[in-house]
Design a protein around this nucleic acid. Structure first.
Lengths: 244, 244
DNA sequence: CTCCAGGCTATACAGGTGTATGGGAAACGG
DNA sequence: CCGTTTCCCATACACCTGTATAGCCTGGAG
């Protein structure tokens, strides 16, 4: 959470004229838009609804952000900014897409996470960029940890990295389903580690299953590619990654 | 010309008056709606666009499906039906949420899969129901395979099953991202096993990683020890009798 | 005081949306 | 021949959308 020691909404402090100052009503509008876009989608959210939620008129929204797409772009930028600050604050390096990258996304705040979830599903430049970064991080992680199984630049590493990012991002996008089944939305801030624990459980279990003869048979039935891979090494002793 | 066989595929053969007959223009409209909903979302798709894509007028769409929500419901039902038929045809039992369940979804056809992906993200009764079935299957699978780690009805099994379904469903929802990174959309029908292979690769790699000391440390940092055991559990997930 | 820049509001407008309505065409049944 | 049913179309309507425009209010500068 960014430091925001403002008990009052600060009616009209005449902000500096130059750069985007991001305080006062402008920030209120942006936050309201974030929530509205997250809840109703880019198309479902309305300018009037956002203005009402922010306690301002529709004209002011236009005055500050021009058009609806401009407002959307501002939300994108704000969320990406928040995420980057969170990542650098947590000291995460390239391996964003371990269980850690997801945690950083969640730690950026429920509103931002919800917005990102919608943006990923709807497809926005910001969400695509973030997803690409997660995927790049995952590919680096895979290639660095298992160079024989996922050679750098190989199609197998690329596919696995994309799938990994999609799977972890999918838990974000489908947070409503998780909330329905787990009893608590993983995006509401309480117990941020619960989803991570479940994901690790899944990977451990499914990893063992995939390594079993039954799993190998399933993999074979899918038309295994050129490299079936050694199934004997179970503990490759990966190099220490960053905060997970 | 009273006695005239069918020179055209659907000459309006006066179908049976009673039940939903699903032929002629009605099916065309439904298919066009499926594609439109999948591409533009429930809100973005328009009645006029669907009618034009189906080659009919807007009035006919209303005549057959009443309202837009009725059309949406019909699409839901059709997709769910298709999926069930595919599952039973493949002889899949409870383990819907292994790599098999996802494959059945994909095998139901690109249009249905795309529609389902959108429906999962937007949230519809059909998508929720299907996701619940996948989750139930995953929970059964986890509890049956690792009874000590995922006791039946435990919170840990429930969380892991929900996460597993969300992760696999997420690859469906984020298929555009996968297409961007893998170079081919996993929902376009060609090489249906490629995504499954990537998922298995991910589970194997991440499973090994989670079992490593580094992974265990990460799991510990998330709040719970390696074996929390069954904590507060609630009523087991509702199961549908009959259809397995 | 006046002046005036800028945050802020109210209203108007053009376009698109879902839906209701009235009517036309073809296949039976008489 | 007419009547009825069903499929199908063109149009109208009320509503909501994003956006443009004109004006009000505050507060500092001259």
């Amino acid at each position: 959470m960014p430091t925001d020691p403002n008990p009052r909404p600060e009616p009209n402090p005449r902000p500096r004229p130059g750069p985007p100052d991001d305080r006062t009503a402008r920030a209120r509008i942006r936050d309201a838009a974030l929530a509205a876009f997250a809840e109703h989608g880019t198309r479902g959210a309305t300018m009037r609804g956002i203005a009402e939620a922010a306690g301002v008129s529709v004209g002011l929204v236009q005055h500050h952000f021009g058009t609806k797409d401009g407002l959307r772009a501002a939300c994108d930028e704000a969320v990406v900014d928040l995420f980057r600050r969170q990542v650098s604050a947590a000291g995460l390096g390239a391996e964003l897409s371990g269980p850690g990258g997801l945690g950083a996304l969640l730690a950026a705040g429920p509103a931002a996470a919800r917005y990102l979830a919608r943006a990923m599903a709807d497809g926005s430049a910001a969400a695509d960029g973030l997803l690409d970064e997660l995927t790049d991080g995952a590919e680096d992680f895979l290639s660095a940890t298992w160079p024989d199984r996922f050679p750098a630049g190989s199609a197998r590493a690329r596919d696995a990295a994309a799938a990994l990012a999609a799977m972890h991002g999918g838990t974000l996008v489908l947070h409503a389903h998780l909330a329905r089944r787990m009893g608590a939305d993983p995006l509401d801030g309480t117990d941020p580690g619960r989803l991570g624990r479940a994901i690790i459980d899944v990977h451990r279990a499914l990893g063992e299953f995939a390594a079993s003869p039954t799993g190998a048979a399933i993999a074979d039935s899918l038309g295994t590619g050129p490299d079936p891979g050694p199934d004997t090494d179970t503990a490759p002793a990966p190099k220490e990654p960053g905060r997970g």
